[in-house]
Design a protein around this nucleic acid. Sequence first.
DNA 1: CGGGACTTTGACACCTCTCAACTCTCGTGG
DNA 2: CCACGAGAGTTGAGAGGTGTCAAAGTCCCG
Lengths: 223, 223
Amino acid sequence: MYVTNPTDFRQTERTAFLGGAAAGGESSRTIAAGAFLFREGDSAQFVFEVQTGVLRLTRVLANGRRQVIAFGYPGDIVGFPDGDVHHADCDAITAAQVVVHQTAALKDARRFPEAHQKLLGAAIREISAMQDHFMTLGQKTVTEKMASFLLVLGDRVGTRLGEYTEFNLPMCRSDIADFLCISPETVSRTFTQFRRRNIIFVDQINRVVLLDRAQLLELSEQD
Amino acid sequence: MYVTNPTDFRQTERTAFLGGAAAGGESSRTIAAGAFLFREGDSAQFVFEVQTGVLRLTRVLANGRRQVIAFGYPGDIVGFPDGDVHHADCDAITAAQVVVHQTAALKDARRFPEAHQKLLGAAIREISAMQDHFMTLGQKTVTEKMASFLLVLGDRVGTRLGEYTEFNLPMCRSDIADFLCISPETVSRTFTQFRRRNIIFVDQINRVVLLDRAQLLELSEQD
DNA sequence: CGGGACTTTGACACCTCTCAACTCTCGTGG
DNA sequence: CCACGAGAGTTGAGAGGTGTCAAAGTCCCG
């Protein structure tokens, strides 16, 4: 999950990544909240398709600064290897279920054309989404980043409440901060600012209602 | 080409992307300096492997802000589509030669297992490099970004001059700025700072000699 | 009720951007 | 051969957004 223009995700394939056929030896797996799916440096034997729950991909710089590279929502693929190892940590923000797929399929298009095909599709969509995320990280102000983030989540996981959209924020403020490359304090300040302007409503700390989608859209691309 | 830890590129496959066999209908093509290979919105019929020269991938935000997503150096693949279209502009900074490969191969693993295989490999390496670039954009100061950038270029395209490394910077200052998400003035100031500290030597405006690689390395990861 | 983690809020500093002027390079044309 | 202009790069001054540090508030859970 990257912060992109909301429209981008409408093209995204949401169907189960692996069909019924055992194309490469997939199986299912459950991860408890807080548990790690893999860690940086682990041998990359599998890639994972998120079915339920939310995952978190992170990397840590030598000096301790942390980057949240992506959130893994249902439909996302996580675990594309760097060579033969994972080069990010992946843990579960909420309890999650994933489909496990052997990376062997990555290396043998002849034996697993079906799985291979879909993995390449997923990889290309990932590249596309990451390029969008570059725009967000590099060219946007804090307000624009937060507005984009809320819009994307609303579109991907929101439920309609009349003319409003409501959704959960399972990740903590500092996860959002490290994802958008800003400080947790600034995340908090921006939430407050949005609340004061009646753009969002936050009843519980991780439950958000988008009250004014139009204004959010404007804020997400303002000059 | 992304700004990553120099070590990452040693793993990168440098061999020609397409073997001798006509696996998907490739051909070669020359691009003049300044000419466009494709533009955002163009139907994505081909992906390209850079053989010689340097390409530039850019996107423009609605308000005119520009992001240089990547530089395409020999060995890089550019043009992974977003759906059926390109979602970035690509033009040549210097005259360049590319191998043209039909995107049909992206969609048919059965007919083009060889090409498909290599494309997936390239895509996965691309994802890996982009994740590194996130670290650079989000977590690094201007000095760290510039130091990382110079180190990567030195490793990828530098020639040894005794204990020094020399290379060309075919892109202009504002390209570097838009790639690293900083202002051109700041790029210039950082060059000056590096020159004054005898870390680099700049004889012509786009010819750089790394005098003190150790210090650059330190600057690229300082806390 | 107490402790701890997370969040919010405030004050302040500083890094980087913006704006502006100046310099340098290079190509053109008198 | 020199003057000129255009574009890129450099340098400086000032402003502002965001980070840092610190303290207070909130929530959850034992």
